[in-house]
Design a protein around this nucleic acid. Structure first.
Lengths: 205, 205
DNA sequence: CGCGAAACTTGCTTTTCCGGCAAAGTTTCC
DNA sequence: GGAAACTTTGCCGGAAAAGCAAGTTTCGCG
């Protein structure tokens, strides 16, 4: 899997991973202002210029880990049996996958807190989620025989995981609920599948 | 409505509107690279520094018109009878309102084209949509008796208009479909209300 | 093996952007 | 009328973005 790529490619990936890892840690430990090309590069022992070759902003570096992990979510979705209804695939994959992508509760809490005070990070976060949503829409389109360039349906369906990711980052991090994240996601999917039968008081908690 | 605010406030709003209007026009006519603090300010006859007092980036200025118009969408939603089911309110308001917020087909096409080539504008666009989505979630929460800070449901519901806005900007602009935008939105809402009964081939077009 | 091509890293440099600060001009309010 | 509050503006410094070319590493092929 990894061995069929040459040394050059492996080094690149290692550097990229190390940089984004360092960026994340720096943010957690010293705040986002401490995340500069200089400090991150110093941590990984490359030049600041190299950091800029990999990432065009500190925000991109910080969230690159999520982007990488998200691709495994997409793979998991693609790996479901081709004849399984889309909702079932989502119900199977998302509860665990979302946790994997976003990290544990502490990570999500950090991300939520910092994003709330930092428009640039929030914007980058939304960009990342939109990117993931797009990938999911493509998978759904493949499976339903829709055309991802022309049909709305796969995108509407893909908006569900997207909304879940955003909601999770925004709310669940507060810790006001004691339900486990996978359970929360499962409950939401069920609700949505049944056409969001929400009357006057049917909160998702 | 507008007369109970003083001269100072009116001037501020006028300047803000003029700046964002100028920024949009400049983008349409000369491309996004022509939109700088200098050029926009010159068009409106204020100093570049003043431009920066109002907007922290050119992207913010360009999209400020959408933000302003979006608040009328939210008002329209809030104005629906309190006992009307949420889906019905959305079905009533969104088809026309989305068109109002985003502008005519040419505007949407421009936005789509430029955003596709410009990560910063795309990010700002997503930020704007997320903001609108949040407002919609608040209205829905009010009406369903949910707690916008703790319940997922209003946010999941609000994700529908959000996804529609994004999808519209992304696809409808291409002009590959000849359905009217309001009809398209109506059809999508109906589908979603009925629980997205999409089997293997039920594209939204 | 070993050599030339291609790719990556790095420092340097220029340009642009962002925002703090304080002086000058407006609006508000009493 | 005049002080207080707010907005506009120019100046400025620090940070970031990106082009360029020299030096180094990896790759592919004979």
């Amino acid at each position: 899997m990894t061995s069929d790529v040459g040394l050059r490619e492996r080094k690149k990936r290692a550097t990229r991973a190390a940089l984004s890892q360092a960026a994340w840690s720096l943010m957690v430990e010293r705040g986002i202002d401490a995340v500069t090309a200089e400090t991150v590069a110093a941590t990984v022992d490359v030049s600041p210029r190299t950091f800029r070759n990999y990432f065009s902003s500190r925000e991109e570096a910080i969230l690159d880990g999520i982007v990488q992990r998200a691709s495994s979510l997409v793979e998991a979705l693609r790996a479901r049996p081709a004849d399984e209804p889309v909702w079932d695939s989502l119900a199977h994959v998302l509860p665990e996958a979302i946790t994997n992508v976003l990290g544990d509760r502490d990570d999500i809490a950090v991300l939520a807190r910092v994003s709330a005070a930092n428009p640039a990070l929030l914007a980058q976060q939304l960009t990342v989620f939109a990117h993931v949503e797009r990938l999911i829409a493509e998978v759904i389109a493949e499976r339903t025989g829709a055309d991802v360039e022309r049909d709305l349906a796969p995108h509407l369906l893909a908006a569900v995981p997207g909304a879940l990711m955003r909601a999770v980052v925004t709310f669940w991090a507060d810790g006001d609920t004691d339900a486990s994240l996978p359970d929360l996601v499962r409950a939401s999917i069920t609700q949505l599948r049944d056409g969001l039968p929400l009357g006057r008081a049917a909160p998702a908690t």
